[in-house]
Design a protein around this nucleic acid. Structure first.
Lengths: 246, 246
DNA sequence: ACAAAAGTGTTGTAAATACACCCATGC
DNA sequence: GCATGGGTGTATTTACAACACTTTTGT
């Protein structure tokens, strides 16, 4: 667990915006910093043998206990002022309980990646700098550490753009889900309501869903059918892109 | 002109894919390396006081003599092997005519940015490592130095995606241009031919063009009207996105 | 006057939208 | 049995694609 600066690429950090979907709400995984009590994104550094994606996969495996995480870099954050006035770093330096302090005090640029995960499968684990890890609703995220609020905002923007030419939902929903759940995801990301019937027709026309014979019982009303993604066609759609927008 | 490694962010380089459009062909600005004679992308390093975009602007000002360049980061290239076996570096090290050689020999991740410029306004200038700078047609780019071929490919991909939800052409065409020229740009980027009449109707429906009273004379046939971008609406379209794809 | 390229118009088809009606379930 | 939400169907409107004809210019 010891941190050895020599194993890592200098000047480069990564920050991950982990999105989950639960109770028809989009959530982000956040860490609560030990000394400052600020909320921050899970992140870390890149080992000399890793790509940025490798590093993010490793870090998120530790934070979520998930292997096989869907992630995508979306932006580099390189404002020279972005890590100035970092209270957490100040505290660390004062406390002096970390080696390689000058390494941390240097300027970093950060590669932003977003990850889409199945909310129900995540076991959130804090890192060395935090004492709590958990989900927050998108609209309940207040001010985050450093420029992390900006990073979340840009990640969300990217996701919203991607939804119009790529299928989405795999990685974000459980294996089996209902049409209303999928629609709620789209509505959350797009920030607007969609017509139930037209949504169904359109999403089915993409041919990326398998309708299952089962229905989801236990709801207060008529039991909706369950669907799963047709992975083969889903991947094809990812490559070729979808036609129209929403 | 002297290079002082201490002024720069460690481990981070940038590579710029500069696109220009001329004679109905998409072109990329390339440098020919001094010793190896390999072709490479213009690039460089990030000063401690700069953002990635600042650095790219500075570097491209030197390479193109343009100020005010439209550019956008599109990807980080972080394969640990990407700068191994660099013949150029080997030669440099053998020649020993550069200070800070171990700095260069370290592993770098590179931020890829693409730039769109007006071909006719560029005065290409080589850098310290190259003895020639000039344009190459997209289909005439052979193997480039390091992973630069991959970088060009990814930049092009990004551009192709963006064209379907954003207006394009400003920064890439002269102030005044004809409809066939604009169409040729779209056809090049999309890699397919479009119907002249449908193209005109669609692009006009975006309301981002001003039709000028002048025509472009000198062609062998009927003189086409000149257009210019309506900057106000163009910017609106950039923010709001366009509706359909191509 | 002819060829080549640009301007303008029409029409059929497919997709997006806006609805209405029926069905299952829990209270 | 009634309120709620889900499943399915159908017109209308709009956008897209395919195509024809006329106009202008240089040779």
């Amino acid at each position: 667990m010891g941190f050895n600066a020599k194993e890592y690429l200098e000047s480069v950090s990564i920050d991950c915006v982990v999105f989950g979907f639960h109770n028809n709400q989009l959530k982000v995984l956040l860490l609560k910093m030990k000394y400052t009590q600020e909320w921050s994104l899970p992140g870390g550094f890149v080992k000399l043998s890793e790509t940025v994606e490798d590093a993010a996969t490793r870090i998120l495996r530790e934070r979520t206990s998930l292997t096989d995480i869907f992630l995508k870099q979306f932006r580099v954050f390189s404002d020279p002022e972005r890590s100035k006035m970092n209270p957490a770093l100040k505290d660390l330096i004062e406390l002096g309980d970390q080696p390689d302090l000058d390494w941390f005090a240097k300027r970093f640029i950060s590669v932003g990646l977003y990850a889409l995960v199945d909310f129900t499968k995540v076991i959130a684990v804090p890192d060395n700098f935090s004492d709590y890890a958990g989900w927050k609703n998108l609209d309940e995220i207040g001010n985050l550490m450093l420029d992390h609020s900006l990073i979340v905002q840009k990640a969300l923007n990217t996701l919203r753009l991607q939804i119009s030419y790529q299928p989405i939902g795999y990685n974000l929903l459980p294996e089996k889900f209902t049409m209303p759940e999928l629609q709620a995801l789209y509505e959350t990301l797009l920030g607007k309501t969609l017509d139930r019937r037209n949504f169904q027709r359109k999403i089915l026309s993409f041919d990326i869903l398998n309708k299952l014979p089962e229905t989801k019982k236990g709801g207060a009303h008529k039991a909706p059918f369950l669907y799963e993604f047709n992975l083969e066609n889903y991947k094809k759609a990812l490559e070729n892109g979808l036609t129209g927008g929403w």
